[in-house]
Computed example of a mutant assay.
Amino acid sequence: MAPLRFCANVSWLFTELPDFGQRLHAAAAAGFRAVEAAWLYDSDPLELQRARRAAGVEVVLINTPPGDLDRGDLGLGAVPGREADFRRGLDLAVQYVLMTGRRSPLRIHLMAGRVPAGSDRTLVYRDMEAVFLQNLSYAADVLSKEGMTGLIEPINTRITEPRYFLDSPHQASEILEKLGKENIRLQMDVFHWQIMDGNLTENIRKYLPLIGHVQIAQVPGRNEPDSDGELDFRYLLGTLERLGYRGYVGCEYKPRGQGPPRTRRMSAVRRGNSSRWLVRTT
């Protein structure tokens, strides 16, 4: 039974440091050997490459560009009429990754995007799904040439993103089945899954063959996994380990309080030879 591997989301952690290169070093100092991020496109890729090598960490996940955030975009994968923008964003993500000098297999979250404002989700669903499948098929071919994997992530529509198109593992599974591409997989963020559906143990067991990446945060505050909340992460992480999950577990949460990174350092501690994990801050 292989131990779980953790990565720090440097878009959420170590945010006192304005430079992503500095955050890579902070993540390494906290014991991480891998990081993930939402969008790194404002950073110089060669500078990130130097920082990554100096820190001794790998970048294992990034998102495709969101589009125009000021105009309400949050990904373009399923948005009708924005197919060309999605493809340009995907190409940018791939080139950016290559310029940072990746060494490990990398995953790119192919963001689905929001239901257009003023539209009825049920009325536009079929068109948006068709666009998503078309864009995912294109992405699968592009990513396969570079040995990369695409991910689709359900985001909860009850609290976080009411208009997000992809909002449950069941919907994502149906889309992946229709798509039929081995290098497009499911990204499980337990925060979103708990809010939308609960039933985490059975959903993990059911969808584990599709899962290519996991992210964790406590519910409802989206804080550290060891903070007060609904989820028992010793149990959940132990379940992933016992079931043989081999991907990364991304630490994507909002740290409580402020202060330098050393006051909220995060580590994954295995309890002796047991399969129980505790993700903690020190």
Rank of each mutant, 00 (worst) to 15 (best):
G180A: 09
F20E: 04
R107E: 02
A54K: 11
G272Q: 08
H170N: 06
G118Q: 01
T239H: 00
E224R: 15
R265N: 04
D85C: 09
W193A: 12
E177D: 13
L210W: 08
E202Q: 15
Q49P: 03
T157I: 09
T15M: 14
A112Q: 00
G72V: 07
K181W: 01
G72E: 01
R102T: 01
A28R: 15
N203P: 05
G180E: 02
R205P: 08
A37P: 07
G229Q: 05
E230N: 06
Q194I: 08
R271Y: 10
V214M: 06
P80I: 11
L136Y: 01
D228I: 14
E177I: 14
P162C: 09
I62N: 10
R158G: 12
K178Y: 05
T239Y: 06
T100L: 12
A140G: 14
S119P: 00
L208R: 11
G238T: 12
P116I: 08
E153I: 06
L186F: 09
D189H: 11
E146G: 03
L13V: 14
R158A: 12
S119V: 02
T157N: 13
V115L: 11
D85M: 13
L13T: 13
I62E: 05
R158Q: 07
K254T: 10
F6G: 14
P65T: 13
L106V: 14
L48A: 14
A26I: 04
N135S: 12
I108R: 02
R205F: 02
P65R: 04
E182Y: 03
R82D: 09
G89S: 11
G21Y: 08
C7Y: 04
Y245F: 14
D141E: 15
R242C: 07
E83S: 06
G150C: 04
P225N: 05
H109I: 00
H170V: 12
R280C: 13
D44W: 08
G229E: 05
G101Y: 07
G31A: 01
G31F: 10
R114P: 07
R52E: 15
V214T: 04
P255S: 12
I155V: 15
V10R: 03
K181D: 02
L179D: 01
G75Q: 03
V79K: 05
S144D: 12
V94H: 06
G247T: 01
L13A: 15
L133G: 06
G247A: 03
A139W: 04
A172F: 00
E36M: 08
R265F: 07
M148I: 08
V10Y: 09
W39D: 10
R23N: 08
R88A: 10
R103V: 13
R276C: 09
S227K: 04
I155A: 03
E58I: 00
A51G: 08
A37C: 06
T239C: 05
T149I: 03
E153V: 01
A130L: 12
I175W: 01
E230T: 02
I152G: 00
T281K: 05
G272I: 07
V124Y: 03
A29E: 04
H213I: 13
Y138W: 10
G238I: 13
E47K: 11
A38H: 12
G180F: 07
R265I: 02
S173N: 11
D197N: 15
V97H: 05
A8D: 02
S11Q: 15
V249H: 03
L179G: 09
R270Q: 12
R103K: 01
